[in-house]
Design a protein around this nucleic acid. Structure first.
Lengths: 198, 198, 198, 198
DNA sequence: ATATAAACGAGACGGTACGTCCCGTCTTTCG
DNA sequence: CGAAAGACGGGACGTACCGTCTCGTTTATAT
């Protein structure tokens, strides 16, 4: 039961223009940082006109988020292994993905974005919360396997695992590295599996 | 042991101007939000001239952070009680302090600030990390009392306790309320005191 | 033999904005003088934005000169009569045109202008030197009629006739009036037609 | 013929400060031009404080004029010779003095100055009109010697001789050089001494 | 084929804010 | 007690982007 929209009359939106704008935005983000992105800069660098950019995105934050979402690595490729092992692998991946220029730009983009925007919600879900959701699955499966008890307050638990990554990235008081990732996972597993001593 | 700085020669900086500018900046933050603060707006609202503002702060972010630091509640007034009780009290205070317009502006200001600026470091230490440092003291004292073991990886532990507050504030996926604070503390104590079941 | 300029692509410059800015600049010149003109003042008075003004003129001097050129009376309407008569009429016209607020602003604008600017050259030719060029024609025609000899050093001769007007205007040591104009022409004719006694 | 002012009461103004300010102003004029002089710049370069400068001069134009008057060459050292010879010598001196950076700054200073200021009048008389007054003396003496007739309209005559120098300096349509000086003098003498053919 | 409609680039528009410079004044300390 | 030092309110500078708008052009569908 496909939707019955009559084919639009005029010239269709150019996907080439869209792609060129996104590529230029991404380049600017990597080269100069989120604070230097602007519609004018994207237009100048991409050769796409400002009105066309505004037809696709509402402001500079949105095109930045769109550029950061494009080609975002999917960290959800789960495999079989112990919870500790799987969580360790995932957290390390996320930490590595965020401990880059790109990660910093992601954090800045999220902070600057209009929290009520549709694009912001999509960005938040696709980039910031996707790892957290994958983590929820890991926990639920581990509980099904009987590896851990069904955790109470799972939302809080997930925040305690995934928030520190974002926190170190933004606050910058301590490094965001593999050692941190391992220690974080160890602590998390200690709560989930109270038998083990930290 | 007073420092032997020779008295400065010229007209001293006007503390009145400083105060007026900070007050205007604070008002703008509360009324319109961090994204709408600007040197022009602060100058217009305060009656303080733009050059004078620039003599005191380097840009709009800095005066915003300064305004948010001024009169910041000191959450470090420790008392005696069990770790759980004290931590609960402190986290609830912080959550209440941040679950306001002001808290949101603090998070935005920190995210937008130049991470290498002196003012940013001061802001981070005074506002974002001060609660975390007080928490470190609580943990260390509890260990001395034998209430908990000396926690390994204390930095990661502290991040797991304090990061989720900031995380919910910025990401906004779940509410930042008293229930959350209690659950957070319960989880933290469970790690620190492995005898108890979650 | 029309030029083959391809039609310009984008939105055409608004002639209304241009006109409004020039009118405001002219008003300021007449009311407050050249020393008080500024891009900010022109923008405020005209309702035209500063960037638009900068798109049309490089600085305050240029818009002042442009405003003074607009609607400048053409003093070159020659008629038939003796050299003395025609020169007298022309010099009197110029003196009258310059012995006003507008004349004073013209002198100030020329003195303050960047001497290498294109606009300055146009202004100089249209306003300051146009009378001098008309004078050159009068002299050449009088020589053709045999009324005077072909004057040697005609450039110096023209300077001697037209410089004193500008000189009195700027230096202000003596009035710029009709009597002066007549005496000036009498002297000039005396050089050109050496038969007559001064 | 000393004036009878009662001796001033307090500490006399520092002539050293005055001199340092004037020297700095002169340096700026020569190095950067009239358009770049400012009280701030003079204060910074001279080490003299702004209030002290304001005690001596009313604004930047005045200190510029004062600096240009200081050490101004006196072109009035008359000698004996024919009018043509003496006038030629003087005009050449003036042209040489004005055909320099300094000459251009003098013209700009005069154009920008408040025409009603006392300092402006002094500057005008000392710098711009002093040559003209010396020229008047040359003419009067030549008339006494019977070398020329007593010229009618001597003010206009003087303007015709001295205005073209200033005119070429400011308008810049033709060079200000020795050839011009000689042609100018030749024309002038031709009027004053109608016997000779131009 | 030929309208017609929509998206395109180019580019000017009014507007806001930037960060700097200089003005002329005022307040404080020093010699 | 005047000079020096230096901050003050004020105002203009020239630039960068904003988001909108008018153009003339191009590309597609519908007649």
């Amino acid at each position: 039961m496909s939707q019955d929209i009559p084919k639009p009359r005029g010239r269709p939106p150019s996907k080439i223009a869209r792609r060129k704008a996104l590529a230029a935005a991404y380049d600017i983000l990597m080269a100069d940082g989120f604070g230097r992105i602007s519609i004018d800069a994207v237009a100048a660098r991409s050769g796409v006109s400002k009105p066309t950019i505004y037809r696709n995105w509402a402001n500079a934050s949105e095109i930045a988020m769109a550029a950061l979402m494009e080609g975002h690595p999917d960290l959800a490729d789960r495999q079989h292994g112990s919870l500790h092992h799987e969580l360790n692998r995932q957290i390390k991946d996320i930490v590595q993905a965020f401990a880059t220029t790109r990660g910093r730009q992601i954090a800045l983009a999220l902070a600057a974005a209009d929290p009520d925007s549709e694009m912001t919600r999509a960005f938040r879900n696709r980039i910031v919360l996707s790892g957290r959701e994958a983590g929820r699955q890991l926990l639920e499966e581990a509980a099904l396997r009987g590896e851990i008890q069904e955790p109470s307050d799972i939302e809080v638990m997930l925040d305690m695992i995934y928030a520190p990554i974002f926190y170190r990235l933004l606050v910058g008081h301590l490094p965001l590295d593999t050692g941190f990732a391992e220690a974080l996972v160890a602590k998390a597993v200690a709560i989930l599996n109270p038998g083990t001593t930290t």
